[in-house]
């Protein structure tokens, strides 16, 4: 009788182990948009999740990669089209614009003023906090290349990797929460 119970407990422990491995207390987010409002939302959710002791992994792809460019860095050896893209796309998180009501930059300037008034942390502060909280930023290599960006022109961030869709899928399949912004 005792043996049977013991066996059942062992079986349950095994199953529990599998379950724990299956979904971690983790947030995986695809950050696709390069708009100020959407990057802001992504960073607020990400830092909030880290406060819940969740592991946070952000997968930056397409337009969002512009927000990771460091305006102080310039790279050589780009072809004409890549250079054009580089000029046309915002150089860093302080150059990105609102998705709505931008009004030739007036709306973006106004929202930044309102953020200060309402004590909303700036993107600079949020990226700093994210780094301190161990939030991982993974950059999609394919879209980075497509847009003519190079890894060398990205910001200095303590937990940054260049990777592919397989990394995102592996992270997302282990995460309790997945988002696309």
């Amino acid at each position: 009788m005792n043996n049977e119970i013991e066996n059942q407990i062992l079986e349950l422990q095994k199953k529990l182990g599998k379950l724990e491995k299956g979904t971690k207390d983790q947030l995986s987010m695809v950050v696709f948009s390069g708009d100020l409002d959407k990057i802001l939302a992504a960073m607020i959710i990400a830092t909030g999740a880290a406060a819940y002791d969740m592991k946070v992994k952000l997968f930056f792809t397409f337009w969002a990669i512009s927000s990771l460019r460091d305006p102080r860095k310039s790279v050589s050896g780009k072809n004409f089209i890549s250079k054009m893209f580089g000029v046309m796309l915002p150089k860093g998180r302080n150059k990105i614009k609102l998705s709505k009501m931008n009004m030739a930059g007036m709306g973006t300037a106004m929202i930044k003023g309102l953020m200060r008034k309402h004590n909303v942390a700036s993107l600079d502060d949020m990226f700093k906090t994210a780094g301190e909280l161990g939030i991982e930023i993974n950059i999609c290599e394919m879209s980075m290349n497509l847009m003519g960006f190079k890894a060398e022109e990205m910001i200095d961030y303590p937990h940054m990797n260049i990777c592919g869709v397989a990394t995102f899928l592996a992270d997302a399949s282990e995460s309790k929460v997945q988002l696309f912004i």
Binding site: T47, G48, A51, V120
Partner: peptide, 13 residues
């Protein structure tokens, strides 16, 4: 005081 969401939560954490 004087920080907006998620400031207080991060301060608590």
């Amino acid at each position: 005081r004087g920080t907006a969401c998620p400031g207080p939560l991060l301060a608590a954490k």
